[in-house]
Design a protein around this nucleic acid. Structure first.
Length: 217
DNA sequence: CAATAGATCTTCT
DNA sequence: GAAGATCTATTGG
């Protein structure tokens, strides 16, 4: 038997490339943390400064500072008052580009993922929904604020990114990014969402919608 | 099944 | 002050 080649951590060079190449090649890769391993089936590319849909669009701020760290860094942000989403910073260094992890299949540690995802008194979450959607994925992996900024390339990093691109026989599909409003969302200019065709763990497409006001106009 | 509203709070303008 | 790279429950067809 040949030793498994997908057990090694993806190196800096993997991440220090164009964000679209990194996004495509992350499909089928594995991410492990805190006893759970997932296989990535859906991602989105965010181009950094110059990409109207990206957090880095208006340059570096305290919140998005990690986007400007070394490629391979983990950018975890808090949104909608209750959810965390995770990204892997891509190259070139300093541009602010990153790949949002949007959907994955739990391939190890399903019991742990279930503990994190199941709500008391409610029916159990179907297996395919454990990491379907960026916030659900972060919950299954146990990722939140303290993990922001971790360097996944480092040998001792608790977050491991392993494996390579997807099975060449499985087509990669592309489309507009989910939940992005205005320029950078729908339209032909930013079909920057990538997923593996036929995977049940790919999140449902939902156009960006402006939320209704909470207060009087 | 599709559409919508509510939850909840950080961030930047 | 307002919007946000979301999720869930609920309502309506």
């Amino acid at each position: 038997m040949r030793p498994r080649t997908d057990a090694s951590r993806l190196p800096r060079d993997f991440f220090d490339r164009d964000v679209h190449a990194v996004a495509r090649d992350l499909l089928g890769a594995h991410v492990s943390h805190a006893g759970v391993t997932v296989r990535i089936t859906e991602v989105e590319a965010y181009g950094g400064v110059g990409d109207p849909g990206a957090h880095a669009f208006r340059g570096r701020t305290p919140r998005n500072a990690v986007l400007f760290e070394r490629p391979g860094s983990l950018y975890v942000y808090f949104t909608y008052g209750m959810h965390f989403c995770s990204n892997l910073v891509a190259g070139p260094h300093g541009q602010g580009a990153a790949v949002l992890l949007r959907g994955a299949e739990v391939v190890d540690g399903e019991d742990l993922a279930r503990v994190r995802r199941d709500a008391p008194g409610k029916p159990p979450v179907p297996a395919r929904d454990l990491a379907r959607g960026p916030a659900r994925l972060a919950v299954s992996l146990g990722l939140s604020r303290p993990h922001n900024g971790l360097d996944t390339v480092a040998p001792d990093c608790p977050v491991r990114v392993t494996g390579r691109h997807a099975d060449p026989d499985v087509p990669v599909r592309t489309g507009p990014r989910v939940g992005v409003t205005g320029p950078g969302g729908e339209g032909d200019s930013y079909p920057w969402r990538y997923w593996l065709e036929g995977e049940p763990t790919v999140s449902a497409y939902r156009p960006g919608v402006l939320r209704a006001r909470r207060t009087q106009p």
